[in-house]
Design a binder for these strands. Structure first.
Lengths: 179, 179
DNA sequence: ACAAACTTTCAAATAAGATTGAAATTGTGT
DNA sequence: ACACAATTTCAATCTTATTTGAAAGTTTGT
């Protein structure tokens, strides 16, 4: 099998995998293409190779830059912009971890802020209830608060753990040890 | 704010978060509802509370069981099936990790199997090329192989690391230490 | 064996998300 | 200031994933 076929196979596969990683097929394909290109590519080259539109190329390239998975390269004396992917898997992983922490963990913490500040009390009850009903209600309130507390402390720990992992993996010593 | 409002807020938020975790909105909402229910719920109760169809309820409940995030409960003397969520965040995390490893990591390894078995050689060339071109081609082949190798060893390490984390978190000692 | 209660299936409808393509905008050299 | 190349935007369109709802299937008690 020739190099170009292998590259194409890789791009296809990376595109499929991307979808299960919450990344759109095209974004993953653009990333894959840049991962296996030995030199930076222009937007036009990407458009031609993957048969996508200018608009899509632009959008996906911007998103990849946002994730810090690729960067713009400007060649002196040239007007076109070129794009080049970070090729170190450790660096890629760190950047994906950072981005996902931002997108996935922070919203949880924010949501819990909201839910936790509300005052849960049985005082609002309008109806006369039996002792059993009131106790059941109190039990439910307690359980709900515990669940929220559990999620909150979990999310906080996860955030700290991620921090540690990211920082640790940045250390040359740890990296060498793992490699 | 009353308990039911708080629960609803949580369910809504969990649903939104689910989408960025590659879980459908409804599946996440069903999960959230069961997380904050102090007793198991029947399919009908879930359908009514979330205003979803029977079909959707059935499908999403099945998926959650598949992920081992909820389980069926049969009450003696009752025909209906009830559903109850695992409520320990550590257990939830382990199960999600297992499921995601299966879905996300294994396909990568499988794809690399394919790409790596192909023989990359410059022998197929039909055209006469300059020495420089041949050298460039060889360099590209080398780089491509290195990239594949990097991804492969990364994926393997990630799989092992996940294993270690899952196993470690199952240990009561580590769990207590982290808590 | 039947009816009632409940669950599952699946083709069609819907909703959510991604892509296109044409037009607008930006930047560069003359 | 103009022309040209490149980039960006965005409403319309297309794709894909999810949900629905009605019908079929299952299980249980009589």
């Amino acid at each position: 099998m020739k190099l170009d076929e292998a590259k194409e196979k890789f791009i296809q596969a990376w595109g499929v995998l991307g979808t299960s990683w919450g990344i759109s097929r095209t974004m993953a394909q653009v990333h894959a293409l840049l991962l296996v290109s030995s030199q930076p590519l222009s937007a036009q080259e990407i458009i031609d190779t993957l048969s996508i539109s200018q608009g899509s190329a632009n959008m996906n390239l911007r998103a990849l830059i946002d994730w810090q998975l690729i960067e713009k390269i400007v060649k002196i004396g040239e007007r076109k912009e070129y794009f080049s992917a970070e090729k170190d898997m450790w660096e890629i992983t760190r950047r994906v971890m950072r981005e996902r922490r931002k997108r996935e963990l922070e919203p949880i913490l924010k949501m819990l802020e909201d839910v936790k500040t509300i005052e849960l009390s049985e005082k609002d009850k309008k109806e006369i209830e039996t002792k059993e009903e009131i106790e059941q209600k109190n039990k439910e309130i307690k359980e709900f608060k515990e669940m929220m507390q559990q999620i909150d402390s979990f999310a906080n720990r996860a955030e700290k753990a991620l921090d540690v992992m990211i920082k640790a993996s940045e250390s040359k010593i740890v990296e060498r040890f793992l490699k």
